[in-house]
């Protein structure tokens, strides 16, 4: 399984109800179904990826996150997951608000634009960073809302969210003590577990 998904699955309780926003080919949901008796639905808009979900027998719903999530009831899921899609939606703040409304807990992963390589690229060339991991140029990138860890955490504070767990990893999703020490400089991908202010039973890691 994709390394970030392997990290995420540990944060998802067995037997829970999971909504995966931008579920891709359904790898996470299929694994959770087979190994943790999780009942889930994935939202996706890419026809090829939807086809893969159906082949896997994963519940997939063709729905665009940018058109809202009003069709989901409040507190209707235990966990709402969104991997590598926050930076690609039209209103990350709205999606985050909706996620917290729909689920008790949310797990979000996104690339950290504050990573030293991005900073160095911008400082050295004066151009928007292009890398193997983020291979697009500014005018054709689906990633329209890049942020840094600090930006994201500021948004969490603004929305009164609680960060329950946070992991800064490299692009192969390896954890390192350096990234732990200076996440915003040395972490390439952030993996966050957040909840609304009302959730009291969870442990707070950061």
């Amino acid at each position: 399984m994709r390394a970030d998904l392997d990290i995420i699955q540990e944060w998802i309780p067995a037997g829970s109800r999971v909504l995966d926003l931008g579920c891709g080919d359904g790898e996470l949901l299929a694994w959770l179904r087979d190994n943790k008796q999780v009942h889930g639905y994935g939202l996706e808009i890419d026809p090829q990826k939807i086809a893969r979900c159906i082949e896997r027998g994963v519940n997939v719903i063709e729905q665009n996150l940018d058109k809202g999530l009003d069709n989901f009831g409040s507190d209707s899921f235990d966990v709402v997951v969104m991997t590598q899609a926050l930076q690609a939606v039209a209103r990350p703040d709205e999606v985050l608000r909706q996620m917290l409304r729909i689920g008790r807990e949310c797990i979000i992963t996104f690339p950290n634009f504050g990573h030293w390589r991005c900073r160095w690229y911008l400082a050295r060339y004066g151009k928007m960073p292009v890398s193997e991991f983020l291979p697009y140029t500014w005018y054709n990138t689906p990633n329209i809302h890049f942020c840094t860890f600090r930006d994201f955490e500021a948004l969490c504070r603004e929305q009164n969210l609680r960060v329950l767990d946070r992991l800064a990893v490299d692009h192969e999703h390896r954890d390192s003590w350096l990234a732990r020490l200076w996440p915003n400089l040395l972490g390439e991908i952030g993996i966050y577990r957040v909840s609304g202010p009302h959730l009291t039973d969870a442990r707070v890691a950061v």
Binding site: R17, Y41, I50, V58, N59, V60, I61, Q63
Partner: peptide
């Protein structure tokens, strides 16, 4: 589809 999800049924939807 929304009703099926609210009822916790297995469902896939394509547009």
């Amino acid at each position: 589809v929304d009703a099926l999800m609210a009822a916790g049924k297995n469902v896939s939807y394509l547009e």
